[in-house]
Design a protein around this nucleic acid. Sequence first.
DNA 1: CATGAATGAGCTTTCATTCAT
DNA 2: AATGAATGAAAGCTCATTCAT
Lengths: 197, 197, 197, 197
Amino acid sequence: MGENAPSKGNAKTRERVLQAALDVFFEKGFFEARVDDVMARAGLSHGTFYTYFKNKRAALVELVERAVEALYEITEEPWRRGHSYLSLEQSIRGFLETYQRHYKIIKVWKEASVTDAGLAYLWDRLVGKITSRIQKNIEASIRRSICRKVNPVIAARALAGMIEHYAYAMFFKGESADIGEVARTLAELWYHALYVQ
Amino acid sequence: MGENAPSKGNAKTRERVLQAALDVFFEKGFFEARVDDVMARAGLSHGTFYTYFKNKRAALVELVERAVEALYEITEEPWRRGHSYLSLEQSIRGFLETYQRHYKIIKVWKEASVTDAGLAYLWDRLVGKITSRIQKNIEASIRRSICRKVNPVIAARALAGMIEHYAYAMFFKGESADIGEVARTLAELWYHALYVQ
Amino acid sequence: MGENAPSKGNAKTRERVLQAALDVFFEKGFFEARVDDVMARAGLSHGTFYTYFKNKRAALVELVERAVEALYEITEEPWRRGHSYLSLEQSIRGFLETYQRHYKIIKVWKEASVTDAGLAYLWDRLVGKITSRIQKNIEASIRRSICRKVNPVIAARALAGMIEHYAYAMFFKGESADIGEVARTLAELWYHALYVQ
Amino acid sequence: MGENAPSKGNAKTRERVLQAALDVFFEKGFFEARVDDVMARAGLSHGTFYTYFKNKRAALVELVERAVEALYEITEEPWRRGHSYLSLEQSIRGFLETYQRHYKIIKVWKEASVTDAGLAYLWDRLVGKITSRIQKNIEASIRRSICRKVNPVIAARALAGMIEHYAYAMFFKGESADIGEVARTLAELWYHALYVQ
DNA sequence: CATGAATGAGCTTTCATTCAT
DNA sequence: AATGAATGAAAGCTCATTCAT
């Protein structure tokens, strides 16, 4: 990306603009959102936006980059603690909670990705990281014969996709919202899909 | 939607415009596509577009509505022939093939859905139809005790989402493309996720 | 230059826009002139400008290119008919008249050249063409010993510059405006500057 | 002009700003130069500019006014020592050297004059002073019959313009740069253009 | 029906200038 | 005196849509 902001201005104002941008992007949609709307929300003048960001996209990119860092935490811990159903449920729940914590930026991010290859790539890379971790897990399990002999590439993508898709539907389509039960059910499906018994 | 085109004009020309619209929307993206581009592709003048469609969106809606009809075929046949692994694999394969057959309009549709609630609703309704059918299937299976006792709403959404997500990634992100193997793996995951043994 | 206009639109309207552009550029100056001003003068809407020209500069370039063609006539005929004082006077008078005929675009052209290297180049090329013709003339005259032994490069530039400078001052600074007398005096200076007796 | 700077602030800082302004105006052109650029060059903050100058133009005007004083030296000495070819050559050479010594501000000045009547007037007044001195010289020479009977107003303007034009082309268009030879040739042309023998 | 010239609302961006600190 | 964040007027340009021919 690298087209980020001029390093001018006041850090607090910058924060104010970013927060306003996130809110407005989320509420009106990134494409519908006007720089004017953002700055009105921030209580600043239109021109000030350009003290901090090259353009509307640059503000989004900065928001996304911050989220990326936070979201990488998802790819770190989980799946480490064995392949028990329990650890799986905790991992899935963790994912859903992180997703929820960042749902505003995720919504805007995915919206913008539709016409912005750079942003789409960032998302795909994040998903890819998670997926390949799952894939390695499956491969190890197959080697240890505690898992069915499925194509690990396809299986990893399918199961990761199942979770991602559900999270999206749950938070943005207003579907079943009890994270606990969702995590339990998804973990159960996942567990039995792969593991014998 | 109800904002359909006046049924004026020559049917063949209308067809020509629609086909051009589909191609251009697919290639440039719906938002980037200009009415100009569409009509240049159709070999007609810019203004003629508005003889057939109220606006750019109306052409897309018409394309989507046609696809909806065709896509309902997915919701008809499958899952009917028992709950064998085999019928599942055939159903999934059928879904993937239908998805592939309509991939152009699906791509545009999903792209536009991001900022167009009406189009998003149409997709959700289609998915909902499939999902509720799956849900009923699961409920029946549970009743007949041939299936784990999972939350049928969540499970149906998750598994339907898994397939939909995979199809999207496969056709639009250029991932693993051997439909046969994909269908086999997805069916296997699904089958074991739900059915005992 | 080559960044000219879209080949769309009506030829008469294009002409109307160009004429309005020339007038407005001349009156307000190229930099001060707004596309709005031009189109108001043309009695057309703002947006229409962009049917015909990529931007403000493109309209100027088209005006300049037309002038260039006309101005090349200056470089064709003159200085051919011998080196008599009379032919010199006629040539200078011809130059001044042509300059006057195109004074509007010349003023705008020179103004814009200040910050536009492309336009400056076009003017320099035109002047260069005239100058090198004069230079060859001087060289020939020296060879035939009917002219003083001056550096022909410097002399040609100096004399061409003298005429160009005078034309500019005369038409834009409101100085002595009797073309006949000016041409006679300039010719006399030029003639004696070079030719013996 | 009369819009001069308030004589506030520290004289050394003022000097620093002016020097930076001259350099930046020269390098980027007056219109392209940003107050930001000037102050960055001066190693001062943007806002400080307005402690010393009312606006961007005021800084240029101050630079020009200083140059005007220095340039009036051109109008003082020369042409005094008789009408010999030698004194003429020395005068022209002196002009070229003075022009060269101030070439930075002259370039900017002439650039800005294109859209700034006040600055154009200052230049014209300077040129006018030189020209009228030449004119008087010619008139005296005609009275003493050592010079052809030309229109002294036109001749003075033409010859002064020739020198000015050449200086401009020489220093800003990168043409023939040996001042000695140029002065010699220009003096020769001028001398014979006017004086018999 | 087809045409394509004309429209104009609406967005993005720039930067000289101000002014509280 | 110096700072630099904030301002906001102003301009350029795009393109979906209209409508006279």
